[in-house]
Amino acid sequence: MNNSLTALHRTTLVQPRAVKDAANTSASHRLPSHFALKQQLPVPDHLAAQVHSHRQAIRAILEGRDPRLLVVVGPCSLHDPKSALEYARNLSQLAQELEGEMLLVMRAYVEKPRTTVGWKGLAYDPYLDGTDDMAGGLTLCRDLMREMLSLGLPLASEVLQPMASGYFDDLLSWVAIGARTTESQIHRELASGLGIPVGFKNGTDGGVGVACDAMRSAAHAHRHFGVDPQGHPAMIDTTGNPDTHLVLRGGHRGPNYDRQSVAQVHHDLAKAGVKARIMVDCSHANSGKDPLRQPAVFDDVLQQRLDGDRSLVAVMLESHLQEGSQPISGHMRYGVSVTDGCLGWAATEQLLRQGAGRLRGAAEV
């Protein structure tokens, strides 16, 4: 692992200054602005050009101009820079091997949604010990993503906290809006101003109505409250994002990737006037939260695509070096997720190679 990245795991850009409010109910700790962190950890011109090229490639897949399958794959969340970089190196090699059939994009998720409480991700608590050094977390995450970019990989992440997005938006080629935030006006406004393809997940009930509304909203221009790169409150003026699409992740009623469910989704999208370009999340409710069932979901979706459903343009897999998950503790296993359970690397590599072979064979017929 890069020595500078190791050092960053215990340093911060600025010393946070705590200020309590008049009622003593909370305290604020000043963080670096987006501009300041980007100045400290800039993106070299050749990597900026790489990010632009990857965004264009994803747009081409979404629009049907590129016949490859988009595959967003990687750890449920990044928690250990060493294992994350090892995974990225593995994926980079596989991406080159399969580039004729698939565009592999690495999950670089540094924020995690929580229904109640729990570890919120590497950007929030980089040492996994409850100290919540967010300044250090932002610095670590940005440098880690730069290291991944240097391997030639496109990166994907979920935008959870809108104020955090500006720290990483120049590094990402694809962004997700989660099931619990797809309905949020704030996230729709944010997506409308991102120059990045955005996938909106269906609601937790499994229906796609909320996601349809989100895509239509994000496609329009907005003026909304926000923060400028220097950290000042600002009115943000967006132009609208034409590069949004639906992510099917199942819901409380079960999976929604099967042929019957996808046919209903086509009907719902057409009724809403939204173009059918669909990613299937092979995890979450679609796999019954069993990571080892992801290959079955992947194979089913791939077969639907091979049978002629070209709206199925992408899939997502949660995968790490080792399968399963583990709680955060003082004795954690290397390369095992600390959030959702993941497919192991060996099984992931086999699945993607086999999938690419099926796509290649169909193209040759």
Rank of each mutant, 00 (worst) to 15 (best):
A296D: 14
A88K: 09
S28L: 15
P81V: 05
P67C: 08
T239I: 12
C212E: 11
S165N: 10
D80H: 12
R17N: 08
A7P: 00
R360K: 14
S311C: 08
G100I: 01
Q354A: 14
A214Y: 06
P154L: 07
H79R: 09
L160E: 02
A135L: 04
Y109H: 08
R360F: 12
R358S: 04
M145E: 11
S150I: 00
L149M: 07
K271F: 02
H224C: 15
A164F: 14
H267C: 00
G137C: 04
M163F: 02
Q264A: 13
E318H: 05
S261N: 13
G251I: 02
V338L: 06
Q264I: 00
W174H: 13
V51G: 04
T182I: 09
L171Q: 12
D213Y: 00
D66I: 09
P295W: 04
R333V: 12
N24A: 14
G178W: 07
H52S: 14
K20M: 13
R59D: 11
R10M: 06
A276Y: 04
G193S: 11
H34E: 12
H284W: 11
R17K: 14
L98H: 03
P44L: 07
A218C: 02
Y124G: 09
L149K: 05
A48E: 15
P162F: 08
V313P: 01
P233F: 03
R223F: 00
F298G: 02
R142E: 04
A221N: 06
V19R: 12
N24D: 14
R10D: 11
Q322Y: 08
G240L: 13
M1T: 14
L8K: 15
E86A: 15
H29L: 15
L190Q: 06
V301H: 03
Y257S: 03
Q350W: 09
M148C: 06
T139N: 08
V71Q: 11
S217E: 11
A363G: 12
R55E: 07
P295A: 09
H220T: 11
A221M: 12
G64K: 05
R114C: 06
Q326K: 13
R353N: 07
D290F: 00
S173T: 01
L104F: 14
R360H: 15
L128P: 05
A36R: 15
L343Y: 02
P113L: 13
K82H: 15
F298W: 14
D80I: 03
P197H: 07
S83P: 02
G251Y: 03
L37G: 05
V301G: 01
G324C: 09
G226A: 06
L47R: 12
R114E: 07
S311K: 06
T348G: 04
L8Q: 10
L122S: 06
D21R: 01
S283M: 05
G199F: 03
P42D: 13
G324H: 07
E318G: 04
S157A: 14
G254Q: 11
T182V: 10
E349R: 15
V208Y: 01
L306P: 10
C212L: 08
L140N: 05
D300Y: 11
R107D: 08
H252Q: 12
S325I: 00
K275C: 07
A191T: 10
V71H: 13
S329V: 07
D45Q: 14
R223L: 07
E147C: 04
R107H: 05
S311I: 01
L13H: 12
G341V: 13
A285Q: 04
R259P: 00
G193Q: 10
S192D: 09
L13K: 01
S319Y: 02
S337V: 08
D290R: 11
A363L: 12
